[in-house]
């Protein structure tokens, strides 16, 4: 038995940045798991999701909300979506988010833990769209991208998943290894418009 202890670190150490009308904060309490739909398995998966979360799998570009763990399902592609949920149940060391989803939906889908693969941030405030305009090619006008929309795109050369969580509130996910570059991109955008 080892006495060595592993310390967990967040991609941005929980940093947040504030500018007039723009807040950028790291989301620190969410797990992320990808769910792939087996060929000919959509119906079974929908039933499993319905019984566990009271919702079906999201259409591409849309989010649906689950009934537990504040889960949001992000429709990223035709046969794959992400679930983002409170990691409170996983606080025990070694808690496996993928296993938790597998427990919820059985073997109706192929699940992969993505919680450590992404930096998760929330960008909000009256001026946040003006800041995102500098890096985001997606049209974020409320008529085009309202609450519950999701898109996967590229910002400053970095893959980014953007979710409209509420008016003027966006969740942005980007690969963990470039988290500092991503924060720098957001920070520069905010500074340039604030």
């Amino acid at each position: 038995m080892t006495e060595l202890i592993l310390k967990s670190q967040l991609p941005l150490d929980g940093r947040s940045l504030n500018y007039p009308g723009i807040t950028i904060e790291e989301i620190t309490d969410q797990s992320l798991v990808s769910i792939a739909v087996p060929i000919d398995g959509a119906a079974e998966l929908n039933a499993a999701l319905q019984s566990a979360y009271g919702t079906e799998r999201p259409a591409v570009g849309k989010c649906t909300n689950g009934s537990m763990d504040n889960a949001i399902f992000l429709g990223l592609s035709q046969d794959q979506f992400f679930i983002m949920f409170d990691d409170a149940k996983l606080n025990d060391k070694g808690g496996d988010p993928a296993a938790l989803i597998r427990d919820s939906i059985g073997h109706a889908a192929y699940v992969v833990d993505q919680s450590d693969g992404w930096v998760m941030t929330r960008v909000s405030g009256d001026s946040c769209r003006a800041a995102l305009e500098r890096i985001c090619p997606i049209d974020l006008h409320p008529a085009m991208f309202s609450t519950g929309n999701v898109a996967r795109t590229v910002m400053e050369h970095l893959a980014t998943i953007i979710v409209c969580q509420a008016p003027d509130t966006y969740i942005l996910l980007s690969p963990r290894s470039s988290a500092n570059s991503f924060l720098h991109a957001l920070d520069t955008s905010a500074k340039n418009v604030a």
């Binding site: 990808s34 792939a36 087996p38 060929i39 000919d40 046969d79 794959q80 192929y110 992969v112 833990d113 993505q114 919680s115 450590d116 693969g117 992404w118 690969p175 963990r176 290894s177």
Partner: peptide
Amino acid sequence: PDLDVHLISTTEQW
């Protein structure tokens, strides 16, 4: 297209 196979990158995860 009919093979049941699914891919996701885990380079950043581990």
